[in-house]
Design a protein around this nucleic acid. Structure first.
Lengths: 152, 152
DNA sequence: CCGCTATTGACAATCATTCTCAACAGGGAG
DNA sequence: CTCCCTGTTGAGAATGATTGTCAATAGCGG
């Protein structure tokens, strides 16, 4: 496993910015690393998973940690317009992926599309922006929700 | 102007779904039609504009109307991950546009990119989804916020 | 003009997220 | 190895956006 090495690197990232490594931060990062590829969690879902073992990690810390890890680039913040954010491991080396979201049942399917990355760099560059993240989101009705009629 | 004709068409759209045309709905739609091209408003901003004249329109109705108009396709709901939604006229015939958002000051620049539309149709089709909206968002730091340093 | 039903306004309620603050704990200095 | 400074945590209050509740009001088809 690269788990140990990763944590050491994270600790270094944190220290450099004046932050500290804590068991809570390590636990949360570990949860994301153990997640099946491409899974993303909301703060509430993460908090729920953390509760299982012992006392768990407080909701406030869960939120704080997610924001912190996202701010240093370890997590990616996703907003599916559902009213709450989701987070996933940033995994810089992996191909960035995008989402197809059902507006009825909120299931999200992810897909890759390399061309979107270059396009993003081009557009951001044209306006003098330093690009931080690209999110291409397709909203629609999944096959199942189409069947179940357009009722609301 | 096509204002009158548009309202009649809207009324028809509403009636067909069992809704009614009301002065509040007409006023709100008119505000969007009078907006400079590509401008978008949050519920709070819209409510503020409506207040000026007389009593205005209640905040609850403002929210309800935005959601209603978006649900029948007259408005497009935008989520810039700032914690509140924005709305703009859907303008089906106009070229869809996308946004470049500064993560520091939240300014949004819009741009067009036709290729994104076909790509969206292709991907949605591949998964059996009926496409409703496409949102391509680039998050980054605008030139001004880059200058002001990365401090938080 | 009437009546049924959608809509509105005022405000309480909810949901996600952030803030406050006292108790606690990394981790570098000695 | 202990101490101390400062970042961090947990608990709960507070905030901000949005939605729900309900009585009063008003489209609009008849």
């Amino acid at each position: 496993m690269t788990a140990r090495a990763d944590m050491a690197r994270v600790q270094e990232d944190l220290r450099r910015r004046g932050y500290r490594m804590t068991p809570q931060r390590e636990t949360i990062l570990q949860v994301f690393q153990d997640l099946p590829d491409g899974t993303h969690l909301s703060a509430e879902e993460l908090h729920e998973r953390l509760k299982t073992s012992d006392g768990g990690i407080s909701l406030a810390t869960t939120y704080r940690t997610l924001k912190l890890l996202a701010s240093i680039g370890l997590l990616r913040e996703l907003d599916f317009a559902e009213g709450h954010k989701h987070y996933e491991l940033a995994a810089e080396q992996a191909a960035p992926h995008h989402h197809l979201i059902c507006v009825a049942c909120s299931q999200a399917i992810e897909f890759e599309q390399d061309s979107l990355h270059q396009l993003g760099l081009d557009v951001a560059g044209a306006y003098g922006f330093r690009l931080v993240d690209i999110q291409y989101k397709l909203y629609g009705l999944c096959p199942r929700c189409q069947e179940q009629g357009g009722r609301k």
